[in-house]
């Protein structure tokens, strides 16, 4: 249902030439701060869009407010930059009106976790077929540096000069709690990792929630350096893959062992002399394991990157009874108007 009025002869879509990232690049100058992590995310998104191959006219990017919410302007797809926090609700309406569209939502931690927390929760539990990308820089950037719901306790900011006393939200845990069926995590500069996660998110027919750890070079610089740094990253993160043992470390010498009795994880040595069967194998359909992995935030345990949880289920628009292309017509209207008790005056 690309074109809804059959009387209109639309230009033919070119479906033969393979798409490139350039096909998804708009003519607008990108206006993020130099060094912002969003540049890298944008690059990965464009590459992913070219890779998955939906035509630009069939792709819609919806966003709320914030630095990350400027995404739609820089993509040559359809786009709608809406109001703070409400992008998942707008996107739900878009998807209802045309389930064939490939709908993405981009918003920061303020957008998704604070003002729009309610809409995030309900999009996830409904399993609307949306790709939710949440660059998390743990700060309000566009409004100049206030602490966000994802900021670490103690963070000093213009609105918390004495240090924030609030506990931060664990976004992946929140998503799992809301009933998400696809939860993944990556980071802006991990260009060998992020596109793969985005592709997996796109492939899921339902709500895919992707937290992308992102550097705010101005207001929260270096917040995730320990995770992303080449030297320390291998020790501080673990890249999870379905069906593979949970192994990490620069020399792949550590593993995660889950104690199912207590629901806790601990690091165990891997390699010469270590008992290999102690390392837990990642099962992305296991909600209990996903919860344990999502909770790993360091420093004792590595931060989990990759698809933490994926339990495919019918999406919201698939479950709705009505044919989404059907519209009431005059004959149906006539029947409806004369339904029920009527009487005739002659």
């Amino acid at each position: 249902m690309n074109v809804m009025n059959p009387d209109i002869v639309a230009p033919e879509a070119d479906t033969t030439t393979p798409l490139t990232a350039r096909d998804f690049t708009s003519d607008q100058e990108v206006r993020w701060c130099p060094g912002c992590g969003d540049y890298a995310i944008l690059k990965a998104v464009r590459a992913t869009l070219a890779d998955v191959g939906r035509r630009p006219e069939d792709v819609v990017f919806v966003s709320g407010i914030g630095c990350a919410a400027r995404f739609p302007y820089y993509l040559a797809s359809y786009g709608f930059h809406t109001i703070h926090g409400r992008a998942p609700a707008v996107a739900t309406g878009v998807k209802m009106a045309n389930p064939d569209l490939d709908v993405w939502v981009v918003g920061g931690d303020g957008d998704f976790l604070s003002i729009g927390g309610n809409h995030l929760m309900h999009a996830l539990r409904r399993n609307v077929d949306l790709n939710l990308l949440m660059p998390n820089n743990a700060v309000y950037g566009l409004t100049k540096g206030q602490y966000s719901p994802a900021s670490a306790t103690g963070m000093r900011s213009p609105s918390s000069p004495g240090g924030s006393v609030e506990a931060p939200v664990n976004a992946a845990m929140l998503a799992l709690g809301a009933g998400a069926r696809f939860v993944a995590r990556s980071a802006d500069t991990l260009q060998d990792h992020l596109p793969g996660v985005l592709k997996a998110a796109h492939a899921n027919r339902g709500t895919s929630f992707v937290e992308i750890l992102q550097n705010c070079v101005v207001f929260n610089d270096g917040a995730f350096d320990a995770v992303k740094d080449k030297a320390t990253g291998a020790e501080r993160t673990i890249r999870v893959e379905h069906g593979k043992p949970l192994i990490f470390g620069a020399n792949a010498d550590k593993g995660i062992h889950v104690d199912w009795a207590t629901g806790t994880a601990r690091v165990v040595p891997v390699g010469d002399g270590a008992a290999a069967d102690e390392v837990t194998v990642h099962d992305q359909t296991n909600l209990a394991l996903a919860t344990i992995l999502a909770r790993m935030e360091g420093p004792d345990l590595p931060v989990a990157l990759g698809v933490v949880y994926h339990a495919p289920g019918a999406s919201f628009t698939d479950l709705r009874e009505d044919d989404p292309t059907r519209t009431m017509d005059r004959a149906g209207l006539s029947r409806l108007l004369s339904a029920g008790k009527t009487w005739t005056v002659s």
């Binding site: 609700a89 739900t92 309406g93 878009v94 009874e321 989404p324 519209t327 149906g332």
Partner: peptide
């Protein structure tokens, strides 16, 4: 089932913004 879609949103704001999204997408 007769060509009418309804959506009971999570709140009044979502109801308004979902309707806006539907209009944006041509409904």
């Amino acid at each position: 089932g007769e060509g009418v879609a309804t959506f009971q949103a999570e709140d009044e704001i979502a109801a308004a913004t979902a309707a806006i999204g539907a209009s944006f997408a041509g409904g």
